[in-house]
Write a protein that binds this DNA or RNA. Structure first.
Length: 385
RNA sequence: CUCUGUUAACGA
């Protein structure tokens, strides 16, 4: 197991799901018993790649083998459910952890607090923070970073600042993540100058801006209408010795597309490729969207094709963009084809997808299809508005 | 040997 466990972790990190299954068989054949750590590594890997159900099955499997899950097993699964926004299941699991005679750790609390922050339930997040103190776990910089992010989510800048100050008052030293989180909140909630001030503070504290800091600032400038400053900052980033990454370029591509500067956007795309940075699904979706909006479906499909050729998987947003453009131009049948494609890829259409298709069908007078979609949406637990 | 926090895209 000491040889196999790190191997399993490594394979998951590289996204080699099939090889992990193969390795599990090899272990069985050689009579090597998996340990709790083996399962923890597998559960974690499955969750990282979004396979919550498969992870749960591993959890069941390990218990069936007589292995007792430890706090790490629970924390991993808890994190998976929290990330998926399934706090109900997470709470049930927390009960299970306690029933198993285990005590939650600071990570257990941080995971749950982060889960509540992500769904915007700061009341519950706060309550858990108090509970963790009562249980003798002191909130750390990670706890406060989640709380600041949650405050940002509910657009409460004052609250984000309070959490930051409280962190300082507890004698905790904010790290780069904590500063970046606060800076992003300041920028997004209308306090750009405070954001830049904080970057100075951060430097004085001996924490240098990293790529994420720059990306947050560049994106913030783009979104407050300062495209030129954003471009300048990107150049400053390079002169400061930091390499722009895929996200840096994607922010700039998006900003240019929004302003209809598609030529410039393409220039950034080419620059990113020539810097050996592979464009992501987000990058392609932005370009597809820009051409669709312009009414140039031909070019939009050119990008879609390129994306597929490069082996970049389209996601639900990519399909929503295409479906939107097709429905709007009265090509509901073609839109429908994409709808099926997305199901084949295991992507879940959301409320927006259904609405687009229902609207398209209604416009063309296909009431039967529209009604069928409506019921299908209901069956999938999506409530119309 | 395994568990937590920060950045980009659709919005009818």
């Amino acid at each position: 197991p000491f040889t196999y466990n790190p191997l399993i972790t490594g394979l998951f990190a590289k996204g080699f799901l099939k090889k992990v299954e193969a390795l599990q068989l090899v272990m069985e054949n050689e009579g090597i018993m998996p340990t709790v750590v083996t399962y923890n590594a597998m559960i974690h890997g499955l969750l990282q790649s979004g396979h919550v159900e498969a992870a749960r099955l591993k959890f069941v499997e390990m218990r069936a083998m007589g292995l007792l899950p430890d706090v790490i097993t629970y924390n991993s699964l808890l994190n998976g459910y929290c990330k998926a926004g399934n706090l109900k299941e997470a709470l049930w699991l927390l009960g299970d952890l306690r029933r198993a005679g285990l005590a939650p750790t600071i990570l257990t609390y941080n995971i749950l607090i982060d889960g509540y922050c992500r769904i915007g339930d700061l009341e519950e997040a706060r309550r858990l923070k108090e509970e963790m103190v009562e249980q003798g776990c002191l909130p750390d910089v990670c706890t406060y970073t989640s709380l600041m992010n949650g405050s940002h989510k509910v657009r409460n800048l004052a609250m984000a600042r309070e959490f930051f100050d409280e962190m300082l008052s507890k004698g905790l030293q904010p790290d780069c993540f904590a500063y970046n989180t606060r800076i992003r909140a300041e920028l997004a909630l209308g306090a750009a100058s405070k954001a830049f001030q904080l970057r100075e503070v951060m430097m004085l504290e001996g924490i240098s801006s990293d790529t994420v800091t720059y990306n947050i600032l560049i994106d913030g400038l783009c979104k407050t209408g300062n495209l030129k400053d954003a471009v300048d900052l990107q150049m400053k980033m390079v002169s400061d010795g930091l390499q722009p990454d895929c996200i840096t370029y994607t922010c700039l591509i998006h900003a240019h597309c929004e302003r209809g500067l598609l030529r410039e956007a393409r220039k950034y795309f080419n620059k990113m490729v020539s810097n050996r940075l592979p464009p992501s699904a987000v990058t392609y979706t932005i370009l597809i969207h820009a051409y669709c909006r312009k009414g140039n479906l031909y070019s939009a499909y050119g990008w879609f094709r390129k994306m597929l050729e490069q082996g970049v998987e389209p996601n639900e947003i990519t399909y929503n963009v295409l479906i939107h453009a097709l429905c709007r131009t009265g090509r509901t049948q073609l839109a429908y084809r994409h709808f099926h494609e997305m199901l084949e890829r295991g992507l879940m259409p959301n409320k927006y997808t259904y609405t687009l298709l229902i609207d398209g069908n209604c416009r063309e007078g296909n009431w039967a299809d529209a009604m069928r979609l409506y019921f299908e949406m209901h069956q999938n637990g999506i409530h119309p508005d």
